[in-house]
């Protein structure tokens, strides 16, 4: 019996908790992509870099705060920097819209033109970020590292398998729940949120109802800026911040948005968790897990890992291709691309 408990704790510790945290980060990223797609009707490839930009501003402000000796231990200092990061990112989003996207919108350009423009902005932002903060890996978290660690858990329960819960994981989950609740409240209960849904549903009819398109677009960029900054900062807090990572992160984020159904916020969240748990569970080495459950002589020699972690991005790519082939609208019936 104890072996079964140990096996369950092992899965919880190395698969479920990391998957849940990663899923939250992907869900927040995918929400930003899906909002822009729903309202502005193009796939925003610059979203990963928008996340990176927000996280970078937060880190710069965090360093400044640390140099002043400000601390909110046991919570990480970077949380204090979030409002500044959000403000800067929202401003950046609005300026990008004003200087680039608005021109193509007025021309009534096809979505692919806007998509290519967003790829241009992605490279521009990426270069700017690497220039400003450098390409190195940065540790973001300070304060208490664990809510409880493996040793404490083993001591408290007497099990041989430990369960650790990092502060960054706790913060990620709590912040995601609060943010998503606030977003859905906004979209479903407020006039501005409803006008966004109306605009996404039927643009012409929204105009006929007197909804101001410029205002809807502005609110969308504000929401995108908030979501991107928080998603980027949480990802940096949980792992570490490295500008290059956000180019790669774009794939699982888009996969999450498309799997859930583009333009559907609920789908983006579901898609985030589908992608995260697939990625984590396929690249997980099950040897120790099996060893707990089978007699000692049956213990496997190999790692029992389906795919090396080097290939983790292949997982989201395969899921993306399968969804596009079998159910192009995604789980929650979003728009067909």
């Amino acid at each position: 019996m104890e072996d079964v408990t140990n096996a369950a704790i092992l899965i919880l510790n190395f698969l479920f908790v990391p998957g849940l945290t990663y899923g939250c980060q992907l869900a927040l990223g995918a929400l930003g992509v899906t909002l822009v797609y729903g309202i502005l009707r193009f796939s925003n490839f610059a979203h990963g870099e928008t996340m990176s930009f927000g996280a970078m501003i937060c880190i710069l402000v965090m360093w400044w705060l640390q140099s002043l000796g400000v601390s909110i231990a046991p919570l990480p200092t970077v949380l204090l920097a979030l409002p500044v990061g959000i403000a800067a990112t929202v401003l950046a989003c609005l300026l990008m819209d004003r200087w680039v996207y608005r021109f193509y919108r007025r021309q009534k350009s096809p979505p692919v033109t806007l998509l290519v423009a967003s790829i241009g902005l992605m490279f521009l932002l990426h270069g700017g970020i690497r220039f400003a903060i450098g390409p190195d890996d940065r540790v973001v978290g300070d304060g208490a590292r664990f809510i409880f660690n493996a040793r404490e858990f083993r001591h408290a329960t007497g099990l041989s398998e430990g369960l650790a819960f990092k502060t960054s994981q706790g913060i990620t989950i709590v912040v995601t729940v609060l943010l998503v609740a606030a977003l859905f409240w906004f979209l479903n209960r407020t006039r501005a949120g409803k006008s966004m849904r109306a605009f996404s549903d039927n643009e012409d009819l929204a105009l006929l109802s007197g909804i101001n398109p410029d205002r809807v677009v502005m609110i969308t960029w504000v929401l995108t800026g908030i979501l991107a900054t928080i998603a980027g900062t949480l990802y940096g807090l949980d792992k570490s911040y490295k500008p290059f990572v956000f180019l790669q992160l774009l794939l699982p984020i888009f996969a999450a948005a498309i799997v859930g159904g583009l333009g559907n916020p609920l789908g983006a969240i579901a898609g985030g968790f589908v992608i995260a748990f697939s990625e984590v569970s396929i690249t997980f080495a099950y040897r120790k897990f099996v060893a707990y459950l089978v007699p000692e002589s049956w213990e496997p020699e190999g790692l029992l890992q389906l795919l090396s972690t080097d290939y983790k991005f292949a997982v989201s790519f395969v899921i993306l291709v399968l969804v596009l082939l079998i159910r192009p609208t995604g789980i929650f019936r979003g728009k067909v691309i």
Partner: peptide, 25 residues
């Protein structure tokens, strides 16, 4: 006020929300 021939409701929104959006101004 104008009611187009096709696509004249917000399909994903409830009847009440449709009317609310009509009164947006």
């Amino acid at each position: 006020g104008f009611v187009p021939q096709t696509a004249n409701v917000f399909t994903s929104m409830t009847v009440e929300e449709n009317l609310e959006m009509g009164a947006f101004i």
